[in-house]
Write a protein that binds this DNA or RNA. Structure first.
Lengths: 337, 337
DNA sequence: TTGTACGCGTTATCAT
DNA sequence: ATGATAACGCGTACAA
């Protein structure tokens, strides 16, 4: 019940035992050259005094903080919440702690966070890019400081950096196949903003999947939304106005799908009958809904986060940067509701 | 485009300018005793050399890390994701970073995380207790180390610690009133495990709310669940087996409500007609559902997190511990869907 | 106004 | 097997 206002240090232990601080240090670290007796005495006293090494001193000395920084758009997104949850678990296993920063899709905030991480001397960074990020100079900057960075989910294109992401084409193939098997020929894509990589990728894979299944591709069945509720409604309205409406829809993500469901309800369109929907990223919510989408394409946020973290720890461990740049691409998968 | 393999230090700047390191240090910190000219020269060179102070050294020296630790059960819970999202924003404003730890409701993990935080010399801790935590000795332990801790949401009872939480009684009053106004007299409570404070609190407030509205309280209308799907089903089955079934249900949380919805669908019970439901914690999901609950009782996770963070920073700033223990109780509120 | 000297807690190196 | 010393980068009392 003593009150250690001043934390116990190695020096104090040394003084009380009338030995040198270096001996204490070595004893505590099980250095082989220290005698068993001394080691025991030191450890015993350290225990009694409730000695706790001052990590800030160790960080300072070892130039290592056992800390990684994670930057992602928004923590309250279920997708990213799952990812960071998995990252934290992997990091914990490695005795690393996780520093947190959310960019809110703001490039300026992203840079601030990265700078903050750098001044905090994190050992590495995991990052999922915000929607509006265009300037990627910070990658080179981090490289100079020898801080490894691994991207996940929303990763930069055409840049040689370690990244982990989900290949949407496999899931889209499955989705189109699922539609085709059910006799659909007029399949629409409610896509995100044309400027987004994620949109382009969906579009290209969608087109290819149609071709692979011998289905015609028609521009009018691809509509774009800014992902706001109004945008989603406007996109749906475009489809509704068509002479031959689509009987199946691939939706940009689950949020879009929710708006599609709402739109359909308001317009008296019977989901799962008049039109069938498949979307991206899997909510456990769906099973509770009366007319859930046919399925959604799972992108495995937890796996992406865990995988990215593992790669980052490999990079942190071996300074050798002559190894090939590690990438990891997960296959997306259609999951039926 | 120079490659600063070894980060620039104050010493180097001093050497290049042929002045002493202390002068450089003072100049960079705008110490009044340093001449304007010298200050400018130093700052200019520091800029050119892209000098970045070594935070680990500063942390070490100042015995302060500008870091807070946040412990909560599970990050992928939307409730906690919102909370930590708000916490991170408040911390960022104060130039603090956030260390993360999830307990997964495991008391052992909780202690490990706290120890990890302590060895990392965090300046303070925010914590939401796991469901299974009984031993609260760590609070006293942290007190000895003079590490302030503020609890939020799931807070310890009968312990004099700073805490922020939501008073459920106001929301429950509103819920019971809403039911009463609609003519319900047989109102059930599908509660969580009897051992949980959260359950006891709901139960007591529920009972009082019934009395306040002149409604009878009947034990048989209070059923308990372990919050698993099976448990929720079993609890609902108990209510279904009653001679006079309840026409209204207050549910422990939204997860329970989802199972209630599923149960009702399977048993052919028409929700919003045969039986009405109000639950706790608000999902934006509800608006997309065909028969959402009547409402839910909002507990404001973001506000709780932000408020707890603000209190923690006050505690960190003023070492004076003779001030009264700051508590902050938010009123819960019924939100109609 | 500036420089000197020291200390924060730990560990690596060299000596004994 | 153990001790003495230096060093990590920075801030600051004290001296000049």
């Amino acid at each position: 019940m003593s009150k250690p206002n001043k934390p116990i240090t190695i020096k104090e232990i040394a003084r009380k035992l009338r030995i040198s601080p270096s001996t204490v240090s070595r004893a505590l670290n099980d250095h082989p050259s220290i005698g068993l007796v001394t080691t025991m005495r030191v450890k015993k006293l350290a225990e009694e005094l409730k000695y706790e090494p001052n990590q800030t001193a160790i960080f300072f000395k070892q130039r290592k903080t056992f800390t990684i920084g994670v930057i992602l758009p928004k923590l309250s997104e279920p997708f990213f919440a799952s990812a960071i949850s998995a990252i934290e678990e992997v990091a914990g296993d490695q005795k690393f702690t996780v520093l947190l920063g959310q960019s809110l899709d703001n490039p300026e905030r992203e840079l601030n966070i990265i700078n903050s991480f750098r001044t905090h001397r994190v050992d590495g960074i995991l990052m999922s890019l915000g929607k509006n990020t265009t300037n990627l100079d910070f990658i080179e900057s981090l490289h100079k400081y020898e801080i490894p960075i691994v991207f996940f989910d929303c990763v930069p294109e055409d840049v040689e950096v370690p990244k982990v992401y989900c290949d949407l084409s496999t899931g889209i193939q499955e989705a189109v196949q699922a539609f085709a098997e059910r006799g659909h020929t007029q399949i629409a894509l409610v896509n995100g903003p044309e400027t987004l990589n994620a949109s382009v990728e969906r579009m290209l894979s969608f087109k290819k999947a149609l071709e692979d299944h011998g289905l015609p591709f028609d521009d009018k069945y691809v509509v774009y939304s800014d992902l706001s509720e109004e945008g989603n409604y406007a996109a749906m309205e475009k489809l509704r106005m068509l002479a031959d409406r689509p009987s199946a829809i691939l939706a940009f993500n689950d949020y879009v799908t929710l708006d599609i469901i709402k739109f359909a309800k308001e317009k008296g369109i019977y989901l799962g009958h008049d039109v069938h929907v498949i979307s991206f990223a899997n909510y456990s919510m769906w099973k509770y809904m009366d007319n859930p989408p046919l399925g959604s394409i799972e992108q495995y946020p937890a796996e992406q986060g865990a995988q990215a973290a593992k790669i980052l720890f490999q990079l942190i461990d071996k300074k050798e940067s002559d190894a090939p740049i590690p990438n990891h691409i997960l296959a997306s998968k259609l999951v039926y509701q």
